[in-house]
């Protein structure tokens, strides 16, 4: 049973068509890596999945609910879909602990003590339990991104979306974030990752997709994608970034 289904998703920004009919499915527990040149619509697509952007044509079904304009409780779907941003987007006025427990307390209505216990567990999982009482501004980029992952996980989401999680990081910090993501993938989380980290794609992805100019030009297993690409565009892309 696929947890996300997209059929012919199209999206325009003014006159510019960002998505030209994307269709895909992702099964529970699957790890999907989307790559492609900038402006290819890959970020727009995953932002459509939790409706930070609204698609104009086609349909997206997340966990059995179709995303439409007259959807009343978009919050309940968003609570099931965790998202990690390129620029972390932590809340600067709250401590790390408060950042993580905010949504469980206010959206899930959990008690503070339970949420804090769970937050500590998550911070241990991403390897920074000692930073709990600091503010985001006092952490390094890699640490901030791991807090952002913990914040998304605190809601017990069914799906995790990663929108270029390592693009804003210094090279030596990329590894710590990727390690946290690999660990998460191994635990069986459904993940869609937009990234240029081909090493990560090779190691943990179940499938790799290449987007170009708003279309999906190739969908393949990682082994095939890297060693034996079907499409010329993929060959060009790989030759440029590897």
């Amino acid at each position: 049973m696929s947890i996300i289904q997209a059929k012919g998703v199209k999206k325009w920004f003014g006159d510019f068509q960002a998505l030209k009919g994307i269709s895909m499915e992702i099964a529970e527990g699957e790890v999907l890596v989307i790559c492609g040149p900038s402006g290819s619509g890959k970020s727009t697509f995953i932002r459509c999945i939790n409706r930070l952007e609204q698609h104009q044509e086609g349909e997206i079904v997340v966990d059995g609910t179709e995303l439409t304009n007259d959807l009343k409780n978009i919050e309940t779907i968003r609570a099931e879909v965790g998202m990690v941003f390129q620029s972390f987007n932590l809340f600067p006025h709250l401590t790390v602990m408060q950042n993580i427990t905010l949504a469980p307390i206010w959206v899930r209505k959990k008690s503070r003590s339970d949420s804090e216990e769970k937050a500590m567990e998550l911070l241990n999982r991403v390897g920074i339990p000692e930073q709990a009482d600091k503010f985001p501004g006092q952490l390094s980029g890699g640490q901030q991104q791991r807090v952002a992952i913990a914040r998304a996980l605190a809601m017990d989401p069914k799906i995790m979306l990663f929108d270029e999680p390592t693009s804003a990081l210094d090279p030596e910090m990329i590894k710590e974030v990727l390690d946290a993501m690999k660990e998460l993938a191994k635990s069986g989380m459904t993940m869609i990752v937009v990234t240029h980290e081909m090493g990560f794609a090779k190691e943990v992805a179940d499938r790799v997709m290449l987007f170009d100019e708003g279309m999906m030009v190739e969908e393949n297993t990682p082994v095939e994608f890297f060693d034996n690409p079907k499409n010329d565009r993929t060959k060009l892309f790989l030759s440029q970034i590897l």
């Binding site: 968003r78 959206v107 914040r151």
Partner: peptide
């Protein structure tokens, strides 16, 4: 920044919670 609104949306906050918190 816009990212703050998006982050609040992404963790499922209601509009009032987003504004207030």
């Amino acid at each position: 920044p816009k990212g703050q609104y998006e982050a609040a949306d992404a963790i499922g906050m209601s509009p009032f919670q987003k504004i207030g918190l």
